[in-house]
């Protein structure tokens, strides 16, 4: 039976700096390989709409006629399925998570 087992940890942490970051002032460190915001290299896209067909949340919309590619950022769950199926490999997930938004807009490329 031991009393106050926490003392070791408390003593050690009295002299250390906090492990938390001051978030809005200090940006979060981006982890390589993290699945974040979806990005497209529109010059490579052939508008085959495979990505839109496979997306599990219907976040994408491809306009074949006008050669436009739309994404609803709030719907995208960053699963990366579209990245896998794209025949031209023009989609990729960046490590960051984009900025907060107050409206539900489609982003167009």
């Amino acid at each position: 039976m031991a009393f106050f087992q926490m003392k070791k940890m408390i003593l050690a942490w009295t002299f250390r700096t906090p492990v938390t970051t001051k978030y809005p002032f200090e940006p979060r460190k981006i982890c390589p390989g993290s699945r974040g915001r979806l990005d497209i290299k529109i010059s490579d896209c052939i508008f085959c709409s495979l990505c839109a067909k496979r997306c599990p949340t219907q976040a994408l919309d491809v306009d074949k006629v006008n050669k436009k590619w739309h994404i609803d950022r709030l719907r995208c769950i960053s699963c990366g399925y579209c990245v896998e199926v794209c025949p031209k490999k023009c989609l990729h997930l960046t490590g960051d998570h984009g900025i907060p938004t107050v409206t539900k807009d489609m982003e167009t490329f």
Partner: peptide
């Protein structure tokens, strides 16, 4: 996060 790309939803 480093190995799978997600923190909670590994995917």
């Amino acid at each position: 996060e480093a190995t799978t790309g997600g923190r909670v939803i590994f995917g």
